[in-house]
């Protein structure tokens, strides 16, 4: 279930050691998780994120709050209007971790339409894996998304740029430079024979999918390649076509999927 009350986590963890202000947003979200338990809405104070940036920001803020008692005191005093301070009990996990915990076998059992002969390049980007100590998997040799895709019956295409920066927020004021970064990743995936790319982060999605028009204008050899959230591929494999909302994706992955017999 969705938290009944939440705010934007701030998307990036404030790295300056004396910064407190920018940790308020994620700590407030973590407090809402404890409140949801108190309200009897959920049993455990666990918050699952789909976005890599939320995952990173919430997890790091949680770590800081639990381990830095001075900052914790300041944060508590600024959050005085809350009914109570955050108790440090929330656990932040990414959906991929939850799935891994459930077991890939269980995922396979649910598959109604295996993604056979679909060559998928998993793309992690930065914050699912880094910094070291805060990722969902080993930062240099991740397997978690590969495991999921294999459980869904897809063929995994391992691209060296799977955890290279997509350009991130530079898409706002340096969009051509950001587009070049995404282009290199997309081109590599195409060259290595991937049909499409699977990812988790909405900023990566914007840079690597929505910006393909711009990429095409900047790089004449660029042909375009569909990019899907890994959850969309799950929906497809589980036979939940409508839930996949593939009509939202740009470029449209449906012609390709139709070709492979995976779309009506």
């Amino acid at each position: 279930m969705e938290l009944p009350r939440w705010n934007c986590c701030g998307t990036v963890h404030a790295l300056a050691k004396d910064d407190v202000m920018h940790h308020l947003a994620p700590v407030r979200v973590l407090l809402r998780v404890e409140e949801a338990v108190e309200a009897g809405l959920v049993d455990e104070p666990r918050v699952v994120t789909l976005c890599a940036m939320c995952y990173n920001t919430l997890k790091r803020a949680n770590h800081l709050y639990r381990n830095d008692s001075d900052k914790r005191r300041v944060i508590e005093s600024i959050m005085e209007k809350e009914n109570r301070p955050y108790g440090g009990k929330a656990e932040v996990i990414h959906l991929l971790e939850l799935l891994s915990e459930l077991g890939w076998g269980k995922i396979s059992e649910r598959v109604e339409r295996p993604l056979e002969e679909l060559r998928v390049a998993p793309y992690y980007g930065c914050l699912l894996l880094r910094p070291r100590g805060f990722g969902v998997d080993d930062p240099e040799e991740p397997r978690i998304m590969e495991n999921l895709l294999e459980a869904l019956g897809a063929e995994v295409v391992d691209i060296p740029f799977k955890s290279r920066c997509c350009g991130a927020y530079h898409t706002v004021f340096m969009k051509e430079e950001a587009a070049e970064l995404s282009y290199k990743i997309l081109r590599q995936a195409s060259e290595m024979g991937a049909d499409l790319i699977a990812l988790s982060c909405p900023l990566c999605m914007f840079n690597m999918a929505d910006r393909q028009g711009l990429i095409g204008r900047l790089f004449r050899d660029f042909k375009g390649i569909p990019v899907l959230y890994f959850t969309q591929l799950m929906a497809l494999a589980f036979g939940l076509e409508e839930e996949a909302h593939l009509e939202e994706n740009n470029p449209d992955p449906r012609p390709l999927l139709r070709e492979r017999g995976l779309w009506r």
Binding site: N7, C8, M21, A25
Partner: peptide, 20 residues
């Protein structure tokens, strides 16, 4: 740029949840 600091809510004389 919102920091979720809630200062707006504290300032509201109408007791609105401004930050929210």
């Amino acid at each position: 740029r919102c920091l979720s600091c809630n200062t707006c809510t504290k300032a509201c004389p109408q007791d609105l949840m401004v930050m929210d």
